[in-house]
């Protein structure tokens, strides 16, 4: 591989590589928490870490940060509907 090619490769892969590192680090946190269960209600932290991972994939890997407002809207609408589905169903199960 030519030297110039390598430089190009490093330049364009910078963001994907950083994403990879961040995701693996977050996964390590979750795995550590799951394996040791250090304190009660640790699930709150685990859910937060998961949310971070999802956000990184959406915003960086899937380029939402650079997309048009329309695509941003469509990428969030599904998650909003998820809130409706879970929230409304829980008004049943949490209050039976």
């Amino acid at each position: 591989m030519a030297r110039g090619d390598l430089r190009v490769l490093l330049r364009v892969l910078r963001v994907p590589a950083l994403t990879l590192a961040a995701l693996l680090a977050l996964l390590a946190i979750n795995v550590a928490l799951g394996a040791t269960l250090p304190f009660r209600n640790v699930w709150i932290v685990e859910a937060g870490v998961t949310a971070c991972m999802v956000a990184i994939v959406l915003l960086v890997s899937m380029d939402i940060l650079e997309e048009t407002p329309l695509i941003r809207l469509f990428s969030s609408i599904g998650f909003f509907w998820l809130l409706i589905m879970f929230g409304m169903t829980l008004t049943d199960y949490a209050y039976r």
């Binding site: 979750n30 795995v31 928490l33 799951g34 269960l37 640790v42 699930w43 685990e46 859910a47 870490v49 998961t50 991972m53 999802v54 994939v57 959406l58």
Partner: peptide, 17 residues
């Protein structure tokens, strides 16, 4: 698909195991 698995993993394996 990766993102879905990132949710599946904690939901099934990790949370309050």
């Amino acid at each position: 698909i990766d993102l879905i698995w990132m949710i599946v993993f904690p939901v099934l394996y990790v949370l309050n195991r």
